[in-house]
C-alpha cells in the first residue's frame, strides 16, 4: 500500500470515529502547490452512499513558513456563514497523535484557484470578481477582533506598533534562512527601519497572504478565501499593500491581482473600511511587502538547498518571485532617491 492509500485508510478511521458512523473512502488525491502544508482532496461516503467532499490539510515535517494549524482554523471559524466566504470547518487536531501530523479538515468548495502569474486567469469576470475581492478585504478589516474565535490569532498581545512586529519577524526569518547576503534586500530593510510608517489607524485582522491565487472562484462569483496560515492582528494597510504588490500583476501593474484597476480597488476598500489611505504609510507597506516576500522566497530557497523539501515549488519561488521582488525594491528605492534629490 502506498503512502497516499495508507493515509486515506487512516483518515477514514479517524473520520468515522469523529462522526460516530462508518464512512468509506471514495478517493484521495494530493493537491499540488503551496509549500507550507500537504493538502489532500478526499471523497467519502456514508452508509447510505451519500458523498461528502473534503479538504484535509496536514503540516509538513518541513514547513516553509512555520505556522500552527490553529491560526488558519481560527480564521475559518471566525468567518463561517459571513460575508467573507470560507470553507465549512469540520475538525482540527493540533497533535500528531491521530494521523502523524497536525491537521485541519474542511468541506471542499467547488471552485477554481488560479495561478497568480496568469494574466487572463479571471477573464471575462475580472470586474465582478474584482469588486468582490476588494469588498471582502474590507470586510476582513472591519471584522471585530474581539470575536472569541480570533483569540488565538498571533499579534494580539503585541503592544508596540504593528509595523515593527512584522518587520522584526520577517527580518529574523531572513537572518535565519539566508545562505548569503543580498545587498538590495539589505538596503530595503535599512530604509524601512529608518522611515517607519504612521501608527495603524486601527489594529485589525490581517489575512497575511491576500492575493490572486489564494481564492476560489466559480464563473463570476468569488466563493472562498483560502490560505489563512499567516493571519495575525496588525495594520489594515499590510494586506492592502500585499494584494496590490506588482508581483501579483507583473504584466499589468495597474490591475492588482489581475482584477480591476488599482484606483477603483482602493476606492472600494476605503468605502468599505471607512479608512482614508495615508499614502506615505501605504508606500512603506508596499516596500515591506517586498521584504516579506523575499523572506518567504529565501525560506523556500533554504528548504531546497538544504534538501529538507525539494518540491519544485521551492525552487521556483526562490528563482522567479525572488528576482521580481528585488526588481521592485530597486525601482522603489531609485524613485525615492530621485524624489529626495529634486
Amino acid at each position: 500500500m502506498n503512502n497516499e492509500a495508507q493515509l486515506g485508510e487512516d483518515f477514514i478511521k479517524y473520520y468515522s470515529d469523529l462522526n460516530q458512523e462508518p464512512f468509506s473512502l471514495g478517493s484521495i488525491s494530493r493537491i499540488f502547490g503551496g509549500a507550507s502544508r500537504e493538502t489532500y482532496r478526499l471523497s467519502v461516503f456514508n452508509k447510505d452512499l451519500d458523498e461528502t467532499r473534503l479538504i484535509y490539510r496536514r503540516s509538513q515535517a518541513s514547513a516553509l513558513i512555520e505556522t500552527d494549524q490553529l491560526t488558519e482554523y481560527s480564521a475559518y471559524m471566525a468567518f463561517q456563514n459571513s460575508k467573507v466566504p470560507v470553507p465549512k470547518t469540520i475538525a482540527i487536531e493540533e497533535s500528531a497523535d491521530s494521523l502523524g501530523a497536525p491537521f485541519i479538515i474542511m468541506e471542499e468548495l467547488l471552485g477554481e484557484a488560479a495561478s497568480p502569474f496568469d494574466q487572463a486567469a479571471y477573464s471575462p469576470y475580472e470586474e465582478e470578481l474584482g469588486h468582490q475581492f476588494w469588498n471582502i478585504l474590507g470586510e476582513i478589516v472591519i471584522k471585530d477582533t474581539n470575536d472569541p474565535n480570533l483569540s488565538f490569532i498571533p499579534g494580539r498581545e503585541f503592544e508596540g506598533p504593528s509595523w515593527k512586529r512584522e518587520l522584526d519577524h520577517w527580518v529574523e526569518v531572513i537572518r535565519q534562512d539566508s545562505f548569503g547576503v543580498e545587498p538590495i534586500l539589505e538596503a530595503a530593510i535599512r530604509e524601512l527601519y529608518r522611515n517607519p510608517p504612521k501608527d495603524a489607524v486601527k489594529k485589525c485582522l490581517v489575512h497575511g497572504d491576500y492575493r490572486n491565487g489564494n481564492f476560489l472562484s466559480k464563473d463570476d462569483s468569488l466563493i472562498g478565501i483560502l490560505d489563512w496560515e499567516m493571519a495575525h492582528i496588525g495594520d489594515p494597510l499590510e494586506d492592502l499593500a500585499w494584494a496590490t504588490s506588482p508581483i501579483w500583476c507583473w504584466k499589468d501593474h495597474n490591475r492588482p491581482s489581475y482584477l480591476i484597476q488599482k484606483e477603483k480597488a482602493l476606492t472600494i476598500w476605503q468605502e468599505k473600511t471607512q479608512i482614508k489611505i495615508e499614502e506615505e504609510s501605504l508606500a512603506w507597506w508596499d516596500l515591506f511587502a517586498c521584504v516579506k516576500g523575499l523572506a518567504i522566497w529565501t525560506s523556500a530557497g533554504n528548504e531546497f538547498i538544504s534538501g529538507s523539501n525539494t518540491d519544485p515549488i521551492n525552487l521556483f519561488s526562490a528563482w522567479i518571485p525572488g528576482d521580481i521582488h528585488l526588481e521592485i525594491i530597486l525601482e522603489t528605492l531609485e524613485e525615492k532617491l530621485i524624489k529626495n534629490e529634486t
Binding site: 494530493r30 499540488f32 525552487l315
Partner: peptide, 18 residues
C-alpha cells in the same frame, strides 16, 4: 495518473526549460 505527480513533473519540466 495522479494529478499531483503530473503537476510536480510538469513543474520540473518548466524549471528545466527556464
Amino acid at each position: 495518473e495522479k494529478e499531483y505527480d503530473q503537476s510536480r513533473l510538469g513543474s520540473w519540466g518548466g524549471l528545466m526549460l527556464l
